[in-house]
Amino acid sequence: MSMTYYTLGNSGLRVSRLALGTMTFGTEWGWGADRETARAMFDAFVGAGGNFFDTADLYTGGTAETWLGEFIAERGLRDKAVIATKFTFNSEPGNPNGGGNGRKNIMRAVDASLKRLGTDYIDLYLMHVWDRLTPAEEVLRTLDDLVRAGKVRHVGLSDVPAWYAGRAQAIAELRGYEPVSALQLEYSLAERTIEHEFVPLATRHGAGIMVWSPLASGLLSGKYRPTQAGNAGRLDGFRNTTHPGFQKFSDRNWAIVAELEKVAAEVGRSMAQVALNWVTTQPGVATVILGATKLAQLQDNLGALDFSIAPELRKRLDSVSSAPAPFPHSYFGPEIQVRVAGGTVTGDKPSGYSLPVLVEGEAVSISSN
C-alpha cells in the first residue's frame, strides 16, 4: 500500500491516515499481544509507511507505553514517529488526585509517560475522558504550559461532550493557548453519533478527528454472527458488561453486519477493510486507529486504503447504518429552513466562493468561506 498523510487539524503535524493503536500491547488485561507479536505489528505498520502511534498511560498497566518507546528507540525512529498518549485514569486506588484532569494529575502523568516512553517530548497529548469536574480553563492552561515547557508539541481531547470541546477551543483562541488539534472519538458504521455535533465542530474549528473502534470492537470484522453463541472474540466476553464501548449486539447492528458482508463480497475485499475504508473517508476524519492482537489482522487492516467504495455501494452502507437525528438536529431540516429563509432557496457557499472588494481603487477577491 501507499500511505498518505494529513495534517492534524489546523496544525502542521503530518500524520498517517492509519494510526497504530497500542491498547493491545501486553496481556495484562487477559487479552492482547505478547511482546514478539506487538513488535511484529509495529514493524509491519512502519513498513507500510505509518508514522502515527496511539497509546495511553493506563494501557496494560503502562506496558503499552514502555514497549512502544522501546520499539521506536530500537529502530531509531523518534524523529519520524508521531507519538500520541493520554492522561486521566487513576492507577493509584485511594488517591483522589492520582487521576482526573486537574493540573496536579496532568503534571504527574506527563512526567510518568515521558519516562515510560523513553523520550523527552510527546507529539500529541490528550485528555483521555471528561471527568465531569475540571474546568476547561484549567486543562487548557496546564496543557499550554506543557507546550511552552517543551514537554508536549500539540494537544487534544478524547471522549468529551461537544459543548466542552467547543468551549475548550474557544478558550484557547481567546487566551492564546495551544489550540485543540485533535478530537479522539468512537466512530464506525455502528456508531455514527459524532456526525451531528463533533464533525461540524472539528471541520469548522480546526481539530482533526482521530477515530477509535472503527470496527466497533470487532463487530464489523466478520468474526461475529447473530446466530453464533460462544464467539471467541473480545465482544463475546463482554456480553454481560455495562461498559458502553462493548454494547454492540443489537438488531440494528446485525443488519449493518449483514449488509457489510454483501458489500464486501461485491467489492472483493474483507469486511474489515470495507468498514475501515468507509470511516477513513468520512468528512472530518484525519486518522483511524487500528487495534489488533494478531499480525494477520493488522496486515489485512493496512489494505483498507487501496481501493474505493463505489457510490452506490456506499449509499447502501450509509442507509443501513443511518439513525434518526436526535433533537435539536431533527429540527434543522428543509421544512424549517424554508420557513427561516422566507421560501427562498439557500444553501452552503460553493467551494472557492469569493466576494470582490475594493483596495485602493482596484478590485480584488477575498475568500469568504
Rank of each mutant, 00 (worst) to 15 (best):
N51G: 09
F52V: 00
F53K: 09
D54V: 06
T55P: 00
A56E: 07
A56K: 06
D57F: 02
Y59T: 00
T60V: 14
T60E: 14
T60C: 14
T60I: 13
G61K: 09
G62D: 11
T63L: 13
A64P: 10
E65R: 01
E65W: 04
T66F: 08
W67K: 08
L68Q: 05
L68W: 09
G69M: 07
E70Y: 00
E70N: 14
F71L: 02
I72C: 09
I72A: 07
I72K: 06
A73M: 04
A73S: 13
G76E: 07
L77C: 08
R78G: 08
R78K: 09
K80L: 11
A81I: 00
V82D: 09
I83C: 03
A84E: 08
T85N: 00
T85M: 04
T85R: 06
K86F: 05
K86D: 04
T88I: 01
S91A: 15
G94E: 08
N95G: 00
P96S: 11
G98N: 01
G99C: 01
G99P: 06
G100R: 04
G100K: 06
R103I: 02
K104H: 14
N105S: 03
M107W: 01
V110R: 10
D111E: 15
A112R: 03
A112L: 11
L114S: 07
K115F: 04
K115N: 15
K115G: 11
R116C: 12
L117K: 07
L117I: 06
D120Y: 12
I122Q: 11
D123F: 03
Y125E: 01
M127C: 13
W130Y: 15
W130H: 14
W130I: 08
W130V: 06
R132E: 13
L133A: 15
T134L: 03
P135D: 05
P135S: 08
E137W: 05
E138H: 01
V139R: 08
L143N: 12
L143Y: 14
D145T: 11
D145E: 15
V147A: 09
R148W: 02
R148H: 11
K151R: 03
K151F: 05
H154V: 08
V155D: 00
G156L: 00
S158R: 05
D159H: 12
P161G: 12
A162Y: 05
A162G: 13
W163I: 13
Y164D: 07
A165P: 04
